[in-house]
């Protein structure tokens, strides 16, 4: 009897533990998404209270020939690379710095994490002021060192740089603490053995710390990819006027912002849904590629 119960426990309880997640997620996460999928095959005017006609793949066909979509996708990738790569490297470095015996270590850690508790709205307003063309703090600093003022919003590169900085500022500390948590878990004797072998700190960092962090690095890379490719609020607020076109020439309109524009400004719910699902596919491809790539890099380091 007891044995039977225990077998039932071993077989059944795993499902029991994941059921709440899938149940809640199914209803409040998955269902809306599947519905969005259905909508994407329709011509659907948001203002027309659900009136729609089935158009098959027309929305997707239109999307693939839409120069503004490709423009937005390119911007997304550019901002994603500009924000994610330096962000993760900086996080690794900061985590390494924090992984010392430090005075005031708690305060330092909290200080690093501070940007993450602020709201995107607040942060973007502050940074937009700092990146101001005529009276911004950054152009003022540039002026002191003799560099000309930059119209940050006007150019493609400068707007991407500014938005990437806003994103990276907010998330670097967060990733650093995740790395730190994993660094704390690396067995000390690995370092002790390396010390005995005469390996220096740099070698130890690349040969022990980084490979040991492999699952965590993969985790942050995948999460950053998923988040980074969905960036919407920052470019929307960076424009300063709440116009979702991402600048006068769409120079910093991301794919998610393009979706927002089509859905909530053009009220083309069907087309916007098609963008959502296409973007989802792109993210999946990148997340998987990222996963494989980081795994390989981390393996090579070993």
């Amino acid at each position: 009897m007891r044995a039977a119960l225990s077998r039932l426990d071993a077989k059944g309880s795993p499902y029991l533990y994941i059921v709440p997640f899938f149940l809640l997620f199914g209803v409040f996460g998955l269902w809306p998404l599947l519905y969005t999928g259905y909508v994407s095959f329709n011509d659907w005017d948001l203002l027309d209270a659900g009136e729609h006609t089935w158009v098959g793949l027309a929305n997707y066909r239109e999307l693939l020939g839409d120069a503004y979509f490709w423009n937005a996708l390119g911007n997304t990738l550019s901002i994603w690379v500009l924000s994610t790569v330096p962000q993760l490297l900086a996080a690794l470095w900061i985590a390494h710095l924090l992984n010392h015996r430090l005075r005031a270590r708690t305060s330092l850690r909290m200080g690093v994490l501070l940007p993450n508790i602020t709201s995107i709205v607040a942060v973007t307003i502050v940074f937009t002021q700092m990146f101001g063309r005529d009276f911004g703090m950054i152009n003022w600093l540039l002026g002191i060192v003799g560099a000309g003022p930059v119209d940050w919003q006007a150019n493609t590169w400068s707007s991407h740089l500014a938005i990437s900085l806003i994103v990276a500022w907010r998330w670097t500390g967060y990733n650093a603490l995740i790395y730190l948590a994993s660094m704390q878990a690396i067995p000390h004797d690995l370092y002790e053995a390396a010390d005995l072998d005469g390996a220096n700190q740099r070698q130890q960092f690349w040969r022990i710390t980084v490979p040991q962090l492999r699952p965590t690095i993969m985790f942050t890379a995948v999460i950053s990819t998923i988040g980074g490719l969905q960036i919407m609020a920052e470019p929307l607020l960076f424009a300063g006027t709440s116009t979702p076109t991402g600048g006068s020439d769409r120079q910093f309109q991301t794919a998610a912002l393009f979706m927002y524009e089509q859905g909530f400004r053009e009220f083309r719910f069907g087309y916007a849904s098609a963008i959502a699902w296409t973007l989802c596919l792109v993210i999946a491809v990148f997340a998987v590629a990222n996963f494989l790539l980081t795994r390989r890099i981390a393996n090579d380091e070993k």
Binding site: P14, I18, F21, F22, F25, V27, F28, G29, L30, W31, P32, L33, Y35, T36, V39, L46, V222, I226, Q230, M232, A256, M259, Y260, G263, F269, A272, S273, A276, W277, L279, C280, I283, A284, A287
Partner: peptide, 26 residues
């Protein structure tokens, strides 16, 4: 196990902003 885990991760890839209309209906 593996399939379900991948499914769980995959769910976070869809931009959430557009789910709000169906979610609102719900």
């Amino acid at each position: 196990r593996k399939v379900l885990l991948v499914l769980a991760i995959a769910t976070s890839m869809v931009p959430q902003q557009l789910g709000i209309i169906p979610l609102y209906l719900l």
